[in-house]
Design a protein around this nucleic acid. Structure first.
Length: 518
DNA sequence: CGTGTTTGACCAGCGC
DNA sequence: GCGCTGGTCAAACACG
């Protein structure tokens, strides 16, 4: 009955990263304004429209320039804007210069003309650059997509061997990555039904996909699953079978925070608290309340070893649109889960996702996989990531999500989870700034090229090492040598759960450790 | 009064 | 079969 001191750490703009913001309730995050938006203040006539144009282009360029440093990227952006302003509606330039001083001197006029020409020239050049960048971006994305498809085919073959080539196993990449798009659209479904029935009733049209999912579930549970859910294996209920893969993969986020609550834009309702074995701090159970029947749940617990670390574990995928504030982080966790699950689709002979990341000397310090946990769990460790915070530049107004996620067309393609990079409806854009802290963290995770590598490495590891059920440590560090011989009965089709598997929304929420349970 | 939290009870899986 | 543990439920309670 004791009242628990409750605070909240709201994700703010990158500049405010980790600044504690007590008293800001969870839900205000969406509403909080763009107070910290680094606005460019009329530094010259070019920039006056800087922020009002071409966000999408900016995003694209931004994405492509991700690896570049701040300067070059912003250079491109601003220059592009300059050019467009000049071409489209540049009264500020040509007219003002021409009209303010009508006929001062020919020399001045010609100088202006020359300048204008130069600018036009530069504009053309920059446009070309932008085109090139866009082209490259599309190209790379296409290649990635092809790679995914390739792997999907491999898995198909594998799967056919194993499952007599059931129709459901023939999946497009999209299916592979996004097994139940319309299930996700069931926001309006009367939720008197439970998550499970809801998901089952996703639609008849999804039968194929559900079959695929079930296959995946079975496959998965044979490899992972004996650990926990024979009931899922038995699959007395298709609901459970279909849901299984989605709730199997988990994304665990470790973040250092003294605050008992960190907000990410999602709404959570606490529905339980338990003392977990081996940890003096209670584990709290939350479910997403942003939509009725949303199956997403999370567990929040402080690390037993270091109580300043919050461990938030997400499970399930949202069946509703996410606010931008939640989307960014959700995308990150989704990507993690996607990589985890799609990685586990490795075929017998092939290296899984590491194939996409050929050189992986990087052993994960940010992303680790747990094989001992009941579910495959990927842990994103934000407590020690070298660039977990500071490297971020102020994101463009329409927060473009860092590159790695672009490898997951299902994330981008699913309207429910449209990443902030896409031109968002105004309503969505309203909340974009408040997401900045989430973006910050998200970007910190995802834009780090090592993060992807880390994930891949971790996946490789867990792929190589069959899940051990010794119930010990929950985090596996990558030893490169785990792959082996054990003939991993790798789930031939873990993909069912893959991409969407964890459309997780990330809220760090916790109670202080000194809470006396009970 | 509506909403969210607390907390004991309940259930199911798993190991012995 | 039994006990332990994790996870969920739901009544009671607190708060605005």
């Amino acid at each position: 009955m004791e009242k628990q001191h409750r605070r909240e750490l709201t994700f703010l703009h990158s500049g405010d990263f980790l600044r504690q913001n007590p008293g800001v309730p969870d839900r205000t995050l969406d509403d909080s304004s763009d107070h910290v938006k680094p606005q460019i203040k009329e530094m010259d006539f070019f920039s006056s429209q800087y922020q009002s144009h071409n966000h999408h282009q900016e995003s694209k360029a931004d994405n492509n320039d991700n690896s570049k440093n701040n300067g070059s990227s912003s250079f491109v952006d601003s220059c592009v804007n300059i050019g467009l302003n000049l071409l489209s509606s540049s009264p500020g330039v040509s007219r003002s210069t021409n009209e303010e001083k009508p006929v001062n001197s020919n020399a001045q006029e010609s100088a202006l003309k020359i300048e204008l020409e130069n600018l036009n020239e530069e504009n053309r050049r920059l446009r070309g650059m932008l085109d090139q960048i866009t082209k490259n971006y599309n190209e790379v994305q296409g290649q990635l997509f092809m790679a995914l498809q390739k792997q999907a085919h491999l898995n198909q073959g594998d799967q056919k061997d194993a499952v007599n080539g059931m129709p459901g196993t023939v999946m497009s990449v999209q299916q592979l990555m996004d097994p139940r798009p319309s299930a996700a659209l069931d926001v309006n479904e009367p939720s008197g039904s439970d998550d499970k029935t809801q998901e089952l009733s996703a639609s008849q049209e999804n039968t194929m996909e559900v079959v695929s999912i079930k296959d995946g579930a079975d496959q998965t549970s044979q490899s992972w699953g004996s650990l926990k859910s024979p009931k899922l294996d038995q699959s007395k209920n298709e609901e459970q079978a279909s849901e299984a893969p989605f709730r199997k993969a988990r994304v665990s986020v470790r973040a250092r925070s003294e605050a008992p609550l960190i907000s990410d834009g999602c709404q959570w309702r606490k529905y339980g608290q338990k003392m977990a074995k081996g940890n003096p701090c209670p584990r709290a159970y939350y479910r997403c309340t942003m939509a009725v029947g949303c199956p997403v749940r999370k567990q929040v617990q402080r690390c037993a070893d270091d109580k300043s670390i919050l461990i938030t574990t997400y499970e399930g995928n949202h069946n509703h649109p996410l606010p931008p504030a939640a989307t960014a982080m959700a995308n990150t966790t989704s990507a993690a889960a996607a990589m985890l699950l799609s990685g586990s689709t490795k075929s017998k002979d092939g290296l899984p996702s590491s194939a996409y990341f050929p050189s992986l000397p990087y052993t994960s310090s940010m992303a680790t996989l747990s094989a001992s946990a009941p579910f495959p769990t990927i842990t994103l460790d934000l407590t020690q990531g070298p660039n977990a915070v500071p490297f971020l530049r102020p994101p463009p107004s329409n927060a473009s999500f860092p590159l790695p996620l672009h490898g997951y067309p299902q994330l981008l393609g699913n309207p429910m989870f449209a990443p902030p990079k896409l031109p968002a409806p105004p309503a969505m854009q309203l909340g974009q700034r408040p997401a900045s802290m989430v973006e910050t963290v998200t970007a910190a995770i995802a834009s780090d090229p090592n993060f992807t590598a880390a994930l891949a490495a971790a996946i490789s590891t867990i792929m190589g090492a069959p899940p051990r059920n010794n119930g010990n440590s929950s985090i596996i560090n990558n030893d490169e040598n785990n792959n082996s011989s054990n003939g991993v009965p790798a789930p031939a089709l873990a993909a069912p759960g893959s991409p969407q598997a964890q459309q997780s929304c990330t809220t760090f929420s916790t109670k202080t450790c000194n809470n006396k349970p009970g």
